[in-house]
Amino acid sequence: MSRARGFTLVEVLVALVVTAIVLIVVANGMQASDRRQALVRERDAAAALASDIVEGWLASGGQIEVSGTAGKLAVSVEQQTIFEDEITGARLNELSVTIATPSGRRLATLTRRHLFDGKVDQDAR
């Protein structure tokens, strides 16, 4: 009796099951990677927006009023004077910008302190 060459039906089915499992794992990994990339892009955009707000604050001599939404992002800006010298007019201000999703998930927070010269403030008025 001669033995036939090739694979048995059981071997083929086992190979198919193993291949299917590997493909499912790879597909899930690709989906997770896509979600992480989308989150990174969203956080980068939020950080750029926060940086733009801080740059505007610095350019305006510490005067800013921004809150609300920017597209699909919620923007929160808090400013406080840490120290003010009455003689020179110089003041140390702190600006904190928080960018979040409408659901409240924080994407970026940028806090910056800056010493504003009294001369700059008088020129700006």
Rank of each mutant, 00 (worst) to 15 (best):
L49D: 07
I82L: 14
R105H: 04
Q37R: 15
A90W: 06
G29R: 10
N28W: 06
V18N: 00
R106M: 10
A74G: 00
G71T: 02
M30Y: 07
D121M: 11
T88L: 10
V77H: 01
K119V: 12
V77F: 02
D85L: 02
G29H: 08
I82N: 03
I87C: 00
T8A: 11
V26N: 08
S2C: 06
I53N: 05
L73E: 02
S51W: 01
G68D: 04
Q63W: 00
R125E: 14
V54C: 08
S60V: 03
T109C: 03
S103K: 01
Q79I: 13
I53D: 09
E86K: 06
N93H: 03
V12D: 09
E86I: 02
V54R: 09
A90P: 01
D44Q: 15
G89M: 04
Q31H: 11
I99E: 00
A20D: 05
R5A: 11
E42H: 06
A48Q: 12
L13F: 12
L58D: 05
E86C: 00
V97M: 02
L16N: 04
I64R: 11
A27I: 10
V40N: 10
L9A: 14
E65R: 08
A124V: 04
L92K: 08
R3Y: 09
S96A: 08
V22G: 15
Q79N: 02
L58K: 11
A59L: 09
D52N: 15
A70S: 15
V120S: 06
D85C: 07
F7P: 11
A59W: 00
D44V: 08
A46I: 02
R105Q: 09
Q31K: 11
A27D: 13
K72C: 00
V120Q: 12
Q80H: 07
V14I: 15
S76T: 13
T19A: 15
R106G: 03
T19W: 03
D85Y: 06
R3C: 07
D52P: 01
L73V: 01
A100K: 07
A100E: 09
T111K: 12
R41C: 09
D34W: 14
V54I: 15
A48C: 05
A59H: 04
I21T: 13
M30A: 15
E84F: 10
E84H: 08
D121Y: 01
L58M: 03
A108I: 01
N28M: 07
V66A: 03
L107Y: 04
E65P: 00
R41M: 14
R3A: 14
L23Y: 04
L16S: 12
A70R: 03
T8V: 05
E42G: 03
H114N: 09
V17A: 14
L110K: 13
E94G: 07
Q80C: 05
T69H: 00
G71H: 02
L23V: 11
